[in-house]
C-alpha cells in the first residue's frame, strides 16, 4: 500500500485482487462446511478464513485508492491507514479467538461426536487449499520482501498460518472420524480448535505490536542513522558544513531531511549535482526512504 505507484503498485493490486477472489471462495466453502457439521474446528476455520478475507479486502481497497485517483490527496502515502487497517484486522482476530475459545470450552463440558456432510466438504477443500495456500505464502513472502509494509507482512504471516492450518485441520478431522469408536475422541475437535484459537491469538499479538509501533511517527533506528552519516562522510569534501539531520519513519516510509551549507563560490549546477548524488546514494541504501537536502547557513534544531 504505502506510496508505491506505477508498476510495483499495480502488480501488488493485481496480486491482491487474485487473493481476494481466492479468499472469497475459501470463505464460501468454510461457511458451507461449518453450517453442515457440528465441529468446533470448522467454526474456527470459518472465522480464520473470514479474517483473512477482511485483511485482503482492506489492503486491496487501499492500494486501489493509491493507484487510481488518490495521488494528489495522499502524496505522502497511506501509511497510517495501512496501520489502522492492520489494527482493525487484529481486533477481528481477537474477537474470533474469544468465540472459538468459548465454543471449545462448551464442547469440553458437553462433549459430542462431530458429524455431517460438512466434514467431507471441509476435507476436500482442505486438500485443495493446502496446495493453494502454500504457493500463495511463497508469492506473498516475495512481494513483502520487494516492497515491505506492515500489511503485506501481516498477509505473508496469515498465509503461512493458513497453510499450517489446512494441514492441521485435515489431521484433526481425519483423526476425529477415524477414531470415532473411542469415547475420548470427542475431545479431539475442541482441543484442535483451541490450538487454532491460540495460533490466531499469537498472530493477533504480533499485528498489534508491529502496527501500534509503526503508527507512531518516530525517529530512525540507529543502524539507519549510521547509513545516512556514512554517506555524508563519504561526501565529506563536497560540502562546507552540516547543520542538521532530521529523520522520521511513518509506517513503511522513511523521511530524511539534511541541512547542508556549501561554499558560496560554488556554482549552483555543482551544488545541485552534489545534492542529487548524496540524495540518490542514501535513497538507494535506505529502502523506502525519501531524502530532502536543504541549503542553509544556520544550525537547524
Amino acid at each position: 500500500m504505502t506510496t508505491v505507484i506505477g508498476g510495483d503498485g499495480l502488480s501488488r493490486e493485481k496480486a491482491l485482487r487474485g487473493l481476494f477472489f481466492a479468499g472469497l471462495l475459501d470463505v464460501l466453502l468454510t461457511t458451507t462446511a461449518f453450517l453442515l457439521a457440528n465441529s468446533g474446528v470448522l467454526l474456527a476455520d470459518f472465522l480464520k478464513t473470514s479474517i483473512e478475507l477482511i485483511a485482503i479486502t482492506l489492503s486491496w481497497l487501499a492500494i486501489r485508492r493509491v493507484n487510481r485517483g488518490g495521488g494528489k490527496k495522499f502524496e505522502y502515502g497511506l501509511g497510517k491507514l495501512e496501520n489502522i487497517s492492520s489494527l482493525f484486522v487484529g481486533l477481528v482476530m481477537l474477537l474470533s479467538f474469544l468465540i472459538i475459545t468459548a465454543n471449545s470450552v462448551h464442547s469440553i463440558i458437553v462433549p459430542g461426536h462431530i458429524q455431517g456432510i460438512g466434514l467431507w466438504i471441509s476435507i476436500g477443500s482442505q486438500v485443495v487449499y493446502l496446495g493453494i495456500n502454500g504457493s500463495l505464502w511463497i508469492k506473498n513472502r516475495r512481494l513483502s520482501k520487494s516492497a515491505p509494509s506492515p500489511l503485506m507482512d501481516s498477509q505473508t504471516k496469515l498465509f503461512l498460518t493458513r497453510f499450517i492450518g489446512n494441514a492441521f485441520i485435515l489431521l484433526s478431522l481425519g483423526l476425529s472420524m477415524a477414531l470415532s469408536g473411542f469415547g475420548w475422541s470427542d475431545y479431539i475437535d475442541p482441543a484442535a480448535s483451541m490450538v487454532i484459537a491460540l495460533s490466531i491469538l499469537s498472530a493477533t499479538l504480533g499485528i498489534f505490536s508491529s502496527s501500534l509501533y509503526d503508527l507512531l511517527d518516530r525517529t530512525l533506528e540507529e543502524e539507519r542513522q549510521i547509513v545516512i552519516l556514512a554517506e555524508l562522510a563519504r561526501h565529506f569534501h563536497d560540502y562546507e558544513e552540516l547543520h542538521g539531520i532530521r529523520s522520521r519513519r511513518s509506517g513503511a516510509q522513511v523521511y530524511v531531511e539534511i541541512f547542508l551549507e556549501f561554499d558560496p563560490e560554488k556554482k549552483m549546477a555543482e551544488i545541485q549535482q552534489v545534492i542529487d548524488t548524496i540524495r540518490r546514494d542514501i535513497e538507494q541504501k535506505l529502502q523506502g526512504s525519501s531524502v530532502t537536502i536543504a541549503l542553509t547557513t544556520e544550525a537547524v534544531a
Partner: peptide
C-alpha cells in the same frame, strides 16, 4: 559513540 556522537564529530571536523 552513537549516530548522534558521529554527527557531532562530523560537525567538528567541518568547523
Amino acid at each position: 559513540i552513537s549516530s548522534a556522537g558521529l554527527r557531532l564529530i562530523l560537525v567538528f571536523m567541518k568547523k
